[in-house]
C-alpha cells in the first residue's frame, strides 16, 4: 500500500533526473539552460505535491469549504519560479555574449578555443 502512495513522488524524481541529465550531458549552452528549467520545475512539482491535502480545496477562504490545501509551499514556489526565471534570463544573456565572443555555443568548441588561447599566450 505504502508503495502506491509514493508513486507521485517517483514520477517527479524521474522528471527531475531527466532535467538534470540534460544539464550535465548536453554541450549546447541554451539546451543546458532548458534542462535546468526542467530540473527546477520538477522540484516545484515536488513542493506542490507536499502541500496537497486529499479532499482539500485551493487556499482561498470561503464559507463553503472546511479543508484547504497547505498554502505555504505555494508561496515558496512562487518565489522559486521567479528566482528560476531570473537565473534563466541571466544565463541566456551570458549565452548570447558567449556566442558573440566565441562564435559558438557548444561547450567542447569553447573549451578547445580556450586551450588554444592559453597555448598562444605562453
Amino acid at each position: 500500500m505504502n508503495f502506491l502512495e509514493q508513486y507521485n513522488y517517483w514520477i517527479v524524481i524521474l522528471l527531475m533526473m531527466s532535467g538534470f541529465y540534460i544539464v550535465i550531458a548536453h554541450g549546447n549552452l541554451v539546451k543546458k539552460l532548458m534542462g535546468l528549467t526542467i530540473f527546477q520545475t520538477s522540484v516545484f512539482i515536488l513542493y506542490i505535491s507536499i502541500s496537497k491535502v486529499i479532499g482539500g480545496t485551493a487556499p482561498i477562504l470561503d464559507d463553503q469549504y472546511e479543508v484547504y490545501t497547505n498554502p505555504l509551499p505555494h508561496v515558496l514556489i512562487l518565489t522559486a519560479i521567479v528566482v528560476g526565471v531570473a537565473t534563466t534570463a541571466l544565463g541566456l544573456a551570458l549565452a548570447v555574449r558567449i556566442k558573440e565572443a566565441y562564435g559558438t555555443v557548444e561547450e567542447d568548441v569553447i573549451q578547445e578555443k580556450d586551450l588554444q588561447q592559453e597555448g598562444s599566450t605562453e
Partner: peptide, 24 residues
C-alpha cells in the same frame, strides 16, 4: 494540486516569458 496562484505564475512565467526569451 489546488495551487492556483502557482499555476497562474508558472503559465505566465514558465510558458510565456522564458519561452520568448529562449526563442530570442
Amino acid at each position: 494540486m489546488d495551487a492556483v496562484d502557482v499555476a497562474f505564475t508558472e503559465a505566465a512565467v514558465g510558458a510565456g516569458i522564458s519561452t520568448i526569451l529562449m526563442l530570442t
